[in-house]
């Protein structure tokens, strides 16, 4: 039999057995301790496996990355802020600009379309079907979305038969076809990629916003209508303000998604050609193609810094939720 099957089977059977065994063994160990010590030791024993993994794979590596970012290629010499200066003076600036485009257009796009669908679908009977169709791309990987849209954006020279849907529509409208994925003018390639991500994430925004929309009391809206407000005023003055906390939550998710974007750029524009490079793709380049640990780490730290505000927002929100529990 294939050795990979055996390894995988071993892991699927042995690791769970070890974990259950561990919990049972801790209880044995605790029973040796004295009364009040039992309650004090137990939680730490239950937390140990997770703590070991999180410390070894997230906390220590993050600290090491920050340390590497001030060092040269292989981490042997202190270089101060050189790596950061290199990043901001070179390709880094371009990736930062691209990531800003990603964050802004992805967030606005998903929320505008998602909110519109949530409001419109609320009035029709096929609401759940509509939301399912919109949510489906969330199940698909970035790589599969890339394959799907490679065919959508397919380009043939003007005058020949277009085989991609988008260029077929453009030529039928009397315009000349656009080579979307290899066109750096006006950042067309970047926007083409951002639209794929909007296609993937709009369903998410719709589902979350729709749930929040349904929690608004119908009596409140009806009262405003009785007082003479039209539909637009009801939406602007009542629905939208009540939805804004949810919009903030969806925005943080989209900001993170936009900042970390990698798969589409890696797959469709050869990891950042045609002016599409992003922070994550640049980091991959420095690490893998050039073995530049110092520079790669500096880029990773830039990404981390960009995400810190979202991290703080999440902590505040969690504290708020716990407070009202």
């Amino acid at each position: 039999m294939d050795t990979r099957i055996i390894t995988a089977l071993e892991v699927v059977l042995v690791v769970p057995a070890v974990l259950v065994g561990y919990i049972l063994a801790t209880e044995r160990l605790i029973s040796l301790a004295h009364g009040k010590w039992r309650e004090r030791i137990r939680p730490w024993l239950w937390l140990t496996p997770a703590f070991v993994l999180l410390t070894a794979f997230l906390i220590i590596p993050t600290i090491q990355t920050i340390w590497y970012s001030f060092h040269n290629k292989d981490g042997s010499q202190w270089r101060g802020l050189d790596n950061y200066a290199w990043f901001l003076n070179g390709t880094g600036l371009e990736s930062l600009i691209n990531n800003v485009l990603w964050v802004v257009f992805l967030t606005v796009g998903t929320i505008v379309i998602g909110l519109s669908v949530a409001v419109l679908a609320d009035r029709v009977r096929y609401e759940s079907l509509a939301k399912s169709i919109l949510f489906m791309p969330m199940a698909i990987s970035g790589v599969c979305a890339a394959v799907i849209w490679k065919f959508m954006y397919w380009y043939q020279t003007p005058g020949t038969t277009q085989t991609g849907v988008v260029n077929e529509v453009i030529t039928k409208a009397g315009q000349s076809p656009i080579p979307f994925l290899v066109d750096s003018d006006y950042k067309i390639a970047t926007f083409a990629l951002i639209f794929i991500m909007i296609w993937m994430w709009t369903g998410f925004a719709t589902v979350i916003l729709s749930a929040s929309l349904k929690s608004i009391s119908p009596e409140l809206l009806e009262a405003a209508r009785v007082d003479g407000a039209n539909e637009w005023q009801v939406f602007r003055k009542i629905t939208f303000p009540l939805l804004s906390p949810t919009i903030a939550v969806v925005s943080t998710t989209m900001i993170i998604t936009g900042l970390k974007t990698f798969d589409l750029v890696y797959t469709l524009t050869a990891n950042g050609s045609y002016d599409t490079q992003t922070i994550a793709n640049e980091m991959y380049n420095q690490y893998f193609s050039f073995s530049q640990y110092g520079r790669g780490s500096a880029i990773a730290v830039v990404l981390l810094l960009a995400i810190v505000p979202v991290m703080l927002f999440n902590i505040r929100r969690f504290q708020f939720q716990e407070g009202i529990r």
């Binding site: 997230l58 590596p61 993050t62 990355t65 920050i66 880029i299 981390l304 999440n314």
Partner: peptide, 13 residues
């Protein structure tokens, strides 16, 4: 806080 840590900050180490 760890939920949103970018994986990139852990790859090299």
């Amino acid at each position: 806080a760890l939920i949103v840590i970018p994986l990139q900050t852990t790859f090299i180490p």
